[in-house]
Amino acid sequence: MSTAVSTASAAQLELPHVPCPSEVAPKDAREISRLFFTRLAELEEGTADHQYVRNTLIELNLALVRYAATRFRNRSDQMEDIVQVGTIGLIKAIDRFELTREVEFATFAVPYIIGEIKRFFRDTSWAVHVPRRLQELRIDLAKASDELSQRLDRTPTSAELAEHLGIEVDEVIEGVVASNGYTAGSIDMPTDDTSEFAAPLSDRLGALDADLETAENVQALKPLIECLDARERQILRMRFGDEMTQAEIGAELGVSQMHVSRLLTRITGQLRAGLLAVE
């Protein structure tokens, strides 16, 4: 939005003109925000004036997003995403805030911003998607395990964790299994960190047997071949077992090569149809 449009909108709404809202000092932003919130409550949603006031409030309070983002400075590589997600939380807070709450907007907004950022990590940090219930159970299990380990001076059992959390043992086991989906390792990583010549896990994984499909087809063909008459089975044996040519088969059976060709086409077509029916 241009400065000229901003000035006209502010004058029309009897609000202070804010040339660059995002650069206003936090103390001044609090005072100006109260004026804009008062006016926002009077405007009809969806109008140009309502949009102008709402956008100005967002820019005025972006410092809250940057403040909340500092709590996640250990994830500096994701800081751009964190700020974007935190801004969504700020917008939700603006849309739900009411001056009648008699609470500072910053106090009201920061939990929304942090909540949105945490939701972002919860939904994107897991290597494998698991239900939210299990994501939260993983955190509870980690805390309970630390507490019981200090108290018992050993790793707690599933039964002890279940009793501590007031849940069933099966739920503990389910949570532990789900925790394995939080991170994923590459199969190209060495299996032995102590040796620079260690082979990667991928070298130990089996591969599909190239002849497996052939073996399955042979087993499926056996009952179909048994349904053929003796002459048809003989033709198949000579052509595919003895690898005789059609001319040689014709000479053996006393028929023309063309007739052998028609017989083979009919027999193989019948077998192919039988295999497709089985699949």
Rank of each mutant, 00 (worst) to 15 (best):
A220K: 00
S195Y: 09
M189K: 01
L224S: 09
P223K: 05
E213H: 08
V128F: 09
Q257R: 08
A215T: 10
V218Q: 14
R132I: 08
E168H: 14
S256R: 15
M238Q: 09
T157S: 15
M258V: 05
L236T: 05
L208Y: 04
D146P: 07
N180G: 07
V128W: 10
H164Q: 05
P200R: 14
I117M: 01
V177D: 15
A159V: 06
L165G: 00
F240T: 06
I173D: 13
D193W: 06
E168N: 12
P223M: 06
G254C: 02
Q150G: 12
E168A: 11
L137H: 00
G206H: 00
G206K: 02
P156A: 13
S202F: 12
T245D: 03
G241T: 09
M238L: 13
F197I: 12
R133E: 08
N180H: 12
A198V: 08
R154W: 05
A210F: 01
L201I: 11
E160W: 12
E243T: 04
M238R: 10
L205S: 03
I167A: 03
R233F: 02
V255I: 12
V255T: 01
D153M: 12
P190L: 04
E136P: 06
A198F: 02
D242C: 10
D209K: 07
T157H: 12
D242T: 03
V255A: 02
A127W: 06
T157F: 15
E196S: 09
I187G: 00
G181T: 04
E136Q: 11
Q135V: 12
V130M: 02
T194C: 14
A230H: 04
E147P: 05
